[in-house]
Amino acid sequence: MTTPQLFFAYFAVAMTVLSLLVVTRRSPVHSIMWMLVLFIHIAALYLFLNAEFLAAIQIIVYAGAILVLFLFVIMMLNLKKEETAKKYQAQWPVSAGIAIILAAFLVLILGKIVVLPSLGEYSIEAVKTEGIMMTTGKVLYTEFLLPFEIASIVLLVAIIGAVVLAKKRIE
C-alpha cells in the first residue's frame, strides 16, 4: 500500500465508525458531537481530492451553522424522558436488513467503476495556474448562473418558512 492509500484507509475506517456512532447514540447531543468529528474528516477528504474551497465550506456551513442550529433546537426542547425510552422503532431489524442489502448492492455495482478516458479541462495543473476560487467562480457564475439564482430563492424561502413556522401564533 502506498502512503495515499494508507491515508484513505484511515479515513474510510474512521468515517464508517463515526457514521455508525452518529446513528446509534442515545442522546442527540452525543450524535451531533460525533457528527462534528465526521464533518472534519469529510473536510480533510475534500482536501485530499483538491477541493479546498469545499473543505472550507464544509467546516463553515455544516459544522458552523447546521450543527449549531441542531444544538439550539435541542436546547429548546425538553428531552429528559427521551433518554430512558427505547432507541429504535419496533421494525428496526427490517431497517437493518434493508440497509445491509442496499450497501451490498451499491458496493457490488459501484465497486467496479472506472474513469472514462475523456477527461475535462480542469486538471490539477490547470486549476493551480488560476487558483481554486477563480476556477470555481468562473464555472459557478457562467455555466451555473441560473441554478445559483434559484439557490438564493431556496434560501429566501427557508428563511421566511422557518420564521413563519416557529413564531407564536397571533390571534
Binding site: 468515517m15 446513528v23 422503532q89 442496499l102
Partner: peptide
Amino acid sequence: SWYIVLSAVMFSIGVFGFLARRNLLIIFI
C-alpha cells in the same frame, strides 16, 4: 471506486438511521 464504496457505505448507514431510529432529531441528522 474506493471513494464511491465509502460513499455507498455511509449512505446505507444513513438509511439505517433514518428507518430505525425513533428520535426525530436523529432522523434529521
